[in-house]
């Protein structure tokens, strides 16, 4: 049953560019990018119990680094990607040192403050970041000589990236380290008593989440070919967090589902509903009231209840 569903999903995902128009293919690429981003945030929120309101920092910094490296400093895409990811990871490592001094609300506020600092810098250092005008005229890379300019090519590229990201993060949370992470989330004192180092476990997760946030940022800037300080804003962090919570934090598929929902409401439903912000609010209200743990856990519960009833 599970395999059939998976095969069906794979078939649809692979064949989409052949049947759908460019607009829908591009929409799907954006969904993959948002899903990678939400999955990386979920490592912190769902599995680590660290609610962050500053995750857009990693997306934005990776995107800005890549844009600057390719336009201003004349690097090739390969080198630029490497520098962006290394830079983002280094930043996550440093931010982790600061933010992980606190937990809970304190942690949330520190991540928020750090991301606001970056947002402000992107705005004000207009000599480097071009400020409010953003950096335009970017190109997409051509890995192994394959151009990603067409919507279909970029679609497969981001699909591949999303699959790798999903598998890598699944391995991360289902490993022994993932178990200790969940242990730290639920019982940090007991874990410490058992000889684990809760701080180190959190920090490694923080850096790993920053890494995938950076990957999402690279894809984001390749897709948009433009970067502006709004990508670093609290709104983009909050949107990702909404996606994670709506889909079901702490589940593997939940964030991807939630991110898809947010993106579709924002970019697709807004074409038909003028007050789409209100629709977004109503949908979340509905999720919170009916499925407080998120869509994926909620549907699972519903499915198991339906399963049991006839027998």
């Amino acid at each position: 049953m599970k395999w059939i569903a998976l095969a069906l999903f794979a078939a649809v995902a692979l064949l989409l560019p052949f049947v759908a128009g460019d607009f829908y293919v591009n929409l799907a690429s954006q969904i993959f990018i948002a899903a990678i981003f939400a999955l990386s945030l979920n490592l912190l929120v769902g599995f680590g119990g660290m609610t962050s309101l500053g995750h857009a920092s990693y997306l934005g910094v990776a995107a800005y680094l890549s844009a600057l490296m390719t336009t201003r400093y004349g690097f090739g895409h390969g080198a630029a990607a490497l520098i962006s990811i290394l830079g983002t990871v280094a930043m996550a490592a440093f931010f982790g040192l600061i933010a992980l001094r606190a937990t809970g609300l304190g942690f949330l506020m520190i991540t928020l403050a750090l991301s606001q600092v970056l947002w402000g810098l992107a705005y004000r250092m207009s000599g480097i970041t071009n400020g409010d005008n953003g950096i335009a005229g970017l190109t997409r890379p051509a890995p192994f000589g394959i151009s990603l300019e067409s919507p279909a090519a970029f679609y497969w590229f981001s699909l591949l990236a999303a699959i790798i990201a999903f598998v890598m993060m699944t391995i991360f949370v289902s490993s022994a380290f993932g178990s200790s992470l969940k242990g730290v989330r639920d019982q940090p004192r007991r874990m410490a008593a058992l000889g684990f180092n809760p701080w180190m476990i959190r920090w490694i997760t923080f850096v790993y989440a920053g890494f995938w946030g950076g990957i999402a940022g690279l894809l984001y800037v390749y897709y948009n070919k433009y970067i502006h300080p709004t990508s670093l804003s609290t709104t983009s962090s909050a949107e990702a967090l909404l996606g994670v919570i709506a889909g079901g934090s702490g589940t593997l598929a939940g964030p991807a589902v939630g991110a898809t929902l947010v993106l579709l409401l924002k970019n697709y439903a807004s074409a038909y509903v003028e007050r789409w912000n209100m629709l977004l609010g109503l949908v979340f209200l509905f999720i919170v009231l009916v499925m407080p743990t998120g869509i994926v856990p909620g549907l699972q519960k519903l499915a198991s209840r339906l399963w049991r009833r006839p027998s």
Binding site: G21, D22, F23, L27, D132, N133, N224, T230, N267, A271
Partner: peptide, 30 residues
């Protein structure tokens, strides 16, 4: 800006517009 881009794509790829009027903010246009 990112929404402006998606919307421009929607107008071009889904609605097949012949021309576009707007947008207002410089960063959207850029």
């Amino acid at each position: 800006p990112a929404t402006a881009r998606t919307k421009a794509q929607e107008l071009v790829e889904k609605n097949n517009v012949h021309c576009i009027i707007g947008p207002l903010a410089a960063f959207e246009a850029l």
